[in-house]
Simulated assay, not measured.
Amino acid sequence: MHLPHGTHVAVADGNRFVMFRNDGDALLINLVDPATPDISTSNRGGANPEVRDLDERGHAAGVAELLNSRVLANEIDKLLVIADPLTLGVMREHYHGELEKRLVGEIAKTMTNVDTRKIEQAIAAA
């Protein structure tokens, strides 16, 4: 995948969230400025009553809400989301229409506990 300069990359799972920005160009990905913003986990909707599942759904919904707010504030122009399939599915339920317009792609893969170089390689291979 070619990742345009300045694209934000959100890497999430049901418990962790890290945001990067591509400081490289479309062909040479260089993720910088890792940040772990605070996430609201209050939106825990779901049919499964298990607390762990509800906590993970709440975290995924919170990540989507944070991304929505940053898109609407014009802090994010282009966005790539990398998340495990369950988290990605929950996040999609909460995407704002404007976020969907700015989405350059999604990768359904768990990458929250790997180093930045492996994330860059996964993006390049996608």
Rank of each mutant, 00 (worst) to 15 (best):
M111E: 04
T112E: 11
A61Y: 13
G58R: 11
L66Q: 04
R92H: 03
F17P: 06
E93M: 09
L99W: 02
V90I: 02
H8S: 00
H59D: 05
D53H: 13
H96M: 03
V32F: 00
S69Y: 00
I119F: 02
L31H: 05
I29Y: 04
I82E: 06
V81S: 04
Y95A: 01
G14P: 06
R102G: 00
H59W: 12
D25L: 14
L99P: 06
A12Y: 00
D77G: 09
H8A: 03
R44K: 07
T87W: 09
K101R: 09
M1F: 01
G6T: 03
L27A: 07
M111Y: 14
G58W: 14
E106Q: 04
E98F: 13
E120H: 07
Q121S: 11
H94V: 13
N43V: 14
L54K: 11
G105P: 02
H5C: 06
M19H: 11
V104P: 04
L86R: 08
H2G: 06
L80F: 03
D53F: 14
E93Q: 03
E50R: 13
R117M: 05
L86N: 09
T116S: 09
R117E: 13
K78H: 03
I76E: 04
A126Q: 02
A61S: 14
V18E: 12
V9L: 05
V11Y: 01
D13V: 10
P34G: 04
S42K: 10
T87Q: 08
L3N: 03
A83S: 07
N30M: 08
S42Q: 08
E65F: 14
E106V: 09
G62S: 15
G46P: 13
T112W: 12
A12V: 08
H8R: 01
H2V: 15
E56V: 13
Y95W: 14
N48Y: 10
E56C: 14
R70V: 13
K118S: 11
R117G: 05
M19Y: 06
V18P: 12
M1I: 12
N68T: 07
G14R: 02
V71E: 03
H59L: 15
G14F: 07
V104T: 00
L103E: 02
A126D: 04
N15S: 09
I29G: 08
D25A: 07
T87P: 10
